[in-house]
Design a protein around this nucleic acid. Structure first.
Lengths: 247, 247
DNA sequence: ATGATTTTTTGATACAGATCAAGAACTGGT
DNA sequence: ACCAGTTCTTGATCTGTATCAAAAAATCAT
């Protein structure tokens, strides 16, 4: 008995994302409870994780991969309204459906919790609600930051802003500063980028080519970007050289 | 002693917005605590309530009036990223500054709570955190809904979407349905609308004129709008005729 | 490898919304 | 009621991005 819970605990304790995930503050007993209501699930790139109107029976934490929150109009125009990265939370406690379609952009591996018992745990675990509030406030900041991009930036600035997000994430992982060379893989297709940026794929393609021609980025292949100087990229994004970076 | 707390309680209990405000679930003792740490404040239209980078010593609930969350680029381009209406919450518990400038659009009367003791109350009152999470999730939905407007809608659809929000709010207040005539006062200037919609004031003006010419709205004066048929307006907004209305 | 399919790039053109400019209509103070 | 200042509307023109079209590059199945 003791041994079983120990094992389970070790498994969850080893999870790469736990320090940033919803369970980051949980103690051993809470982790044990989570272990009894969790399961892992892999979704192939392109598959829908959850759709508007459909009830959803779980909440989850992304372990690896990227998913997109998409909003679509009747005539097919679509806008990506959020990007879910490892450690991001999926689902809205207390609500029975998602507000937007959630689609796997790459293969996604996630840690799911059955919704009902998760909410019961939530009801008796205030610090978990606190953690969710924290994460939701961060999501809100990111969404609002992105509203400036969508409403007021030019196509070139939009592309630079998107690349700045990826560069920033990569820089945090590698502990680099604004003056260092940063590189990252582009996990989004041109179409996905256009949906995120409110542009067409042709404009995305043209602006990427332009940034390349101007030496702001190098593009060894279509899906890998090298940023020789991050602060130059940030200037192109219309941000001042160190602030305002999202995600 | 008893009498004093009774009086205070009655005052707060009578507050028009309490059923939707952060304190909506609070019991008498919690309301009493809130009473000891609250004060009221009026801000004139155009004044800044809180600015980025400046530390803020309170959180608050809007009682009457409208405030805007504004994000501004160095060159002056600005995007409104949120609108605060009566009962909306101001400030982010656990964080020391606001992420965006908060500016009074009309005269604003708000109920402020000193930040420190409010956060202490929060720490021992889980249902208040729950309520904040609820409100933050609503804000996030509204922000993401607006991302579709900014990223994918035409100028005409943007104006219609904005008017749909006002119409919806007015309809809820008056309990009207989609087929009824709805009217509302426009509390935003053309410039504020353009900042919210990611347009110029000229385009805002032209599109309002066009909606008027096409009979979608009547405009007895510059600041009052009559919508003869809400579902027609919703169609113009690119929404299907009853879903997707914000705020 | 080879051809079929999909994704990306590039070019030519069209158009929605921005910009520039001038009136017209409001607003507030005296 | 009137004038100065502001906000709003309308017109003319310009421009950035969309659209339409086709070639080039990458990916996939056999």
């Amino acid at each position: 008995m003791n041994l079983v819970s120990e094992e389970i605990n070790i498994k969850c304790g080893n999870c790469d994302i736990r320090h940033r995930a919803v369970c980051s503050q949980c103690d051993t007993s809470e982790l044990n409870t989570l272990n009894t209501i969790k399961y892992y699930k892999t979704i192939k790139a392109g598959q829908t994780i959850a759709a508007v109107e459909e009830p959803i029976s779980f909440v989850a934490s992304i372990v690896t991969g990227i998913a997109a929150l998409n909003q679509t109009m009747e005539d097919g125009r679509t806008q990506m309204v959020g990007m879910l990265l490892p450690s991001d939370f999926v689902g809205r406690p207390g609500r029975n459906s998602v507000a937007y379609d959630i689609v796997a952009t790459t293969d996604v591996y996630m840690c799911c919790f059955y919704k009902k018992p998760f909410e019961e745990l939530l009801a008796r675990t205030p610090h978990l609600v606190n953690r969710l509030l924290e994460m939701t406030l961060d999501d809100l900041d990111a969404a609002r930051e992105w509203m400036l991009v969508l409403g007021r930036k030019t196509a070139r600035e939009k592309i630079a802003s998107l690349f700045a997000i990826f560069a920033h994430r990569s820089a945090v992982l590698r502990r680099k500063g604004a003056q260092d060379t940063i590189e990252f893989d582009l996990h989004l297709s041109r179409e996905q980028m256009s949906d995120y940026l409110g542009l067409t794929i042709e404009t995305v393609s043209r602006q990427i080519s332009a940034l390349k021609k101007d030496g702001i980025i190098l593009l060894p292949n279509k899906r890998h970007v090298i940023v020789p100087n991050l602060s130059v990229l940030l200037t192109e994004a219309g941000d001042d050289a160190d602030g305002g970076v999202l995600v």
